[in-house]
Amino acid sequence: MNNPPLIDVSFVQFINDLPAESVSNPIYYKLYSSLSDIPAISIRIRAKVLYPFNLLLENLVSMIDCSLLPRQSVLIDKILAGRIYMLYPMKFRLFNETLANTEIMSSVDVPTINFDPVQANSTSPHGQYTMFHQAYKQLHSLVHELSRSKYDRLWLAQYLGMYSIDQDGPYRDSISCICDDICSTRLPLFILCPNRRTNSGRNRDRWISNVFPSNKSIPDPIKKIYRFIAQLMGMATRKKHYLDFKFPGFLWKQLVRDQITIEDIEAIDI
């Protein structure tokens, strides 16, 4: 209900079309089970409040620094806590503006990355021959700039020995192979969730960050690889690419600074 087509045309008309009975209307709200038992007039009143709230919030957001971390600004913390009340069109507009404002003109051309699929299928210590590591070795010094460029893709994929011409097929295939490597035992970056290791509960196919000794810092080479994965995520966000990362909900929540609940933990560790 956060993004009906009518909102972009006329919010007033959208409000007027909502039921106004003093009882619930489960038929009208059949697609929104959480609203099916609430009196229809109450939903309508809430919608009337949310619209001016979003207008005020949109004017406010343009004047503040949204890059501040939690607990660095009381105002930012309040806005983050209330973001569930932001209408989708506003979120989408702010999101696209952020992407446009952080885009840069790249000083380098799109590189050609040579992938050796035969070598990638061979056993190697710490996954050094995987498609992921092949991409990392050739891209890690360029990805920060390329991931924020206007290019449609981050690299051109050349499969050695296959005489492939990258018309988007090899590029997308290389991304799929990289994702498969990341969520696998071929690399020491992520491990299967507890539910998979105990063969119980839900979400047994989810992968979580590897566990490192608490009395030691994560080695710098590993940190750089994790950063590279984050940059791939940024690239996918900008270019509308799909990355098949099998991460649990609480990991995604951490990335967007959302609060993790006990239910999130139980989803992969009962």
Rank of each mutant, 00 (worst) to 15 (best):
T237H: 01
W252T: 14
E58T: 14
Y28C: 11
K137P: 09
F212R: 08
T130P: 03
M90N: 06
P219D: 10
T130K: 01
P213Q: 09
Q158A: 11
S62Q: 14
V110T: 12
I15R: 11
L31N: 02
Q138G: 03
M131R: 13
Q119G: 01
G234N: 04
T237S: 02
F190H: 09
A120L: 06
I175E: 03
P26M: 13
K30M: 13
R227Q: 14
S73G: 15
N121R: 03
S147C: 10
D205I: 15
Q13H: 10
N199R: 10
I38M: 10
I38T: 07
H241N: 15
D220C: 05
N2E: 15
D168F: 15
F212Q: 00
H241C: 12
Q119T: 06
L57H: 00
P221M: 14
L56S: 01
V61A: 04
D181K: 06
P125A: 11
P111V: 13
K239M: 11
P194E: 03
L75T: 14
Y28R: 08
M105Q: 06
N2C: 13
K48D: 04
P5K: 11
Y171M: 03
F11W: 10
F92K: 00
S73T: 11
K240M: 01
I104P: 04
F115W: 02
D116T: 08
E97D: 07
S67G: 03
Q167C: 15
F247P: 04
E21M: 12
M233Y: 01
D269V: 10
S164E: 05
Y32W: 00
A47R: 13
D258Q: 15
A157D: 02
T261V: 10
Y85S: 12
P111Y: 07
A40Q: 01
I113W: 15
C66Y: 09
D109S: 14
D65K: 14
P221R: 07
I45H: 05
I191M: 11
P89I: 03
V12Y: 12
T185V: 09
I178H: 00
D220L: 13
S36Y: 02
S147N: 05
S106R: 03
I222T: 00
I191R: 09
S174L: 04
A230V: 05
C179E: 09
V110Y: 15
M235R: 09
R46H: 12
T123F: 05
W207C: 00
T102C: 00
D8W: 12
S10I: 03
I178V: 08
D77N: 10
D258I: 05
L6T: 10
D258C: 12
W155K: 05
I84M: 14
F228Y: 09
N121E: 06
F53Q: 02
S67W: 02
H144N: 11
Q134T: 09
T198G: 08
L80N: 06
R46K: 04
R83S: 11
I113Q: 08
L189A: 04
M105F: 02
R44T: 07
S184V: 08
R196W: 09
H126R: 07
P125F: 13
P117C: 00
A230P: 00
N203G: 15
L146N: 09
I262S: 06
R238G: 05
I229R: 11
L232W: 11
G234M: 12
V23Y: 12
W207K: 04
E266T: 14
H133G: 07
Y85D: 08
A81V: 06
F11K: 02
I43S: 05
R44I: 08
L189Q: 00
